[in-house]
């Protein structure tokens, strides 16, 4: 038996909206630790890892570890029927082939339940080791989204370089070249407006902008995005979910031939 109740149900909606462009089908894993997911895009270039810790739920019951295969666009269709202030409960029986989503309005005068068919998904799981990154950039998530969107009108790839100067985003296209440099800026009124750059070693890596733009669909989850870079490692773009966990996107770099 599985029963997860989240008063801030809009968070589920935001998580789904953040990942459904990248991944079509995924196994959601439930254990005493929490509700999690790891899935790659169809070309195995990008990976999403989600964790919602059990402590973040108002009610969390998971009698045994279960993995539920779901089609994310079908799930998103059902979650679209939930109001933004609704309380969302996810229920499933052990060994069952369906999952139930229950939406309660804050005043309890409207209660809906949607039953969705589960699917069997052969997913490959990758072991992601803890790594010491050469550079870690924390910046406003809206600013990062703006940069990715702007650069993708000019080129297809972005070179992200971190040096003493700051973090530089560069693209090249048929019409020309664009460089955007963000410097460390901690003297702002609100901490969520700061750009903080920790650099152990200079880094420069090239990534496909199409994927970066897809990651920024998770922007509503957090005011801050953390970008962790190491030469010759996939970049990690992380949106922390307050008091609950995170959505992390991993993207393999372009490799010089």
């Amino acid at each position: 038996m599985l029963e997860l109740r989240l008063v801030q149900g809009s968070l589920f909606k935001k998580v789904l909206d953040g990942i459904k462009d990248l991944v079509n089908d995924a196994n959601f894993d439930c254990s005493s630790t929490g509700f999690s997911l790891q899935a790659m895009d169809s070309s195995h270039v990008a990976l999403v890892a989600l964790l919602l810790r059990s402590e973040g739920f108002e009610h969390y019951r998971c009698d045994r570890n279960i993995s539920m295969g779901m089609n994310l666009s079908n799930m998103a269709k059902m979650f679209k029927c939930a109001g933004n202030d609704d309380i969302i409960t996810i229920k499933a029986d052990d060994g069952g082939d369906t999952v139930t989503f229950m939406f309660e309005s804050p005043t309890q005068d409207k209660i809906s339940d949607f039953e969705m068919k589960l699917m069997s998904i052969d997913s490959e799981h990758l072991g992601i080791p803890e790594a010491e990154y050469h550079a870690i950039v924390k910046m406003p998530s809206s600013e990062f989204a703006r940069i990715c969107r702007d650069l993708s009108t000019i080129g297809d790839t972005v070179v992200i370089s971190v040096s003493k100067e700051g973090v530089k985003f560069t693209t090249k296209g048929d019409i020309g070249i664009a460089n955007i440099v963000c410097r460390q800026n901690t003297s702002v009124d609100k901490p969520e407006e700061a750009t903080v750059i920790e650099m152990n070693e200079p880094v420069s890596l090239t990534f496909a902008l199409r994927y970066m733009n897809s990651f920024t669909k998770a922007t509503p989850l957090s005011n801050i995005v953390t970008i962790s870079l190491s030469n010759e490692l996939p970049v990690v773009v992380e949106y922390k979910i307050a008091e609950m966990g995170y959505v992390r996107f991993y993207l393999a770099p372009k490799i010089e031939e």
Binding site: M40, S43, V45, H125, T157, A208, P234, K254, E256, E257
Partner: peptide, 14 residues
């Protein structure tokens, strides 16, 4: 010239 790397080149399957 650059080519797109794949995740399996960096992370092992479990």
């Amino acid at each position: 010239k650059s080519s797109q790397g794949r995740l399996e080149s960096f992370f092992k399957r479990t």
